[in-house]
């Protein structure tokens, strides 16, 4: 698999936005984990993950978001996912993770 994941981090005070581009699967999930987890360990931080340019994510990606969520509980920070494509949103719905992770409710199309 030659498809990669790009991670871009913008910090403004307590708000940290992670913009992802590419695919999240077993190969790229460790990269996401390394970028995301340390950010959730800053008390009071609001970590926003922009998934607009993620057209494929498998369940390994869900695992990264679950561990990030657990970490926000431990360090009193917040996690929010925005701009999910339908396919990615469906994963959160099937697994009911949308009931414990804050997901921006705007519905997006995408392929």
């Amino acid at each position: 698999m030659n498809i990669n994941l790009d991670v871009e981090v913008v910090e403004e005070d307590q708000t940290i936005t992670l913009t992802l581009r590419g695919e999240i699967d077993a190969y790229t999930a460790p990269k996401l984990k390394d970028a995301l987890l340390p950010l959730t360990k800053k008390p009071g931080a609001e970590v926003i993950v922009d998934l607009e340019q993620i057209n494929y994510m498998d369940s390994t990606g869900l695992g990264v978001f679950i561990s990030a969520l657990k970490s926000t509980k431990e360090y009193d920070s917040e996690l929010k996912l925005i701009q999910l494509q339908d396919r990615v949103r469906r994963l959160f719905e099937i697994t009911s993770l949308d009931s414990i992770i804050t997901i921006e409710s705007t519905v997006r199309g995408g392929n």
Partner: peptide
Amino acid sequence: GHEPGFYYHGDQDEFEEIEARGLVLGAT
């Protein structure tokens, strides 16, 4: 949180998704 299965109605030759929402094991 498992991928929904299907229920097949033999008399109508139709499929229906088995809806049963629930959180994945191990998240909380």
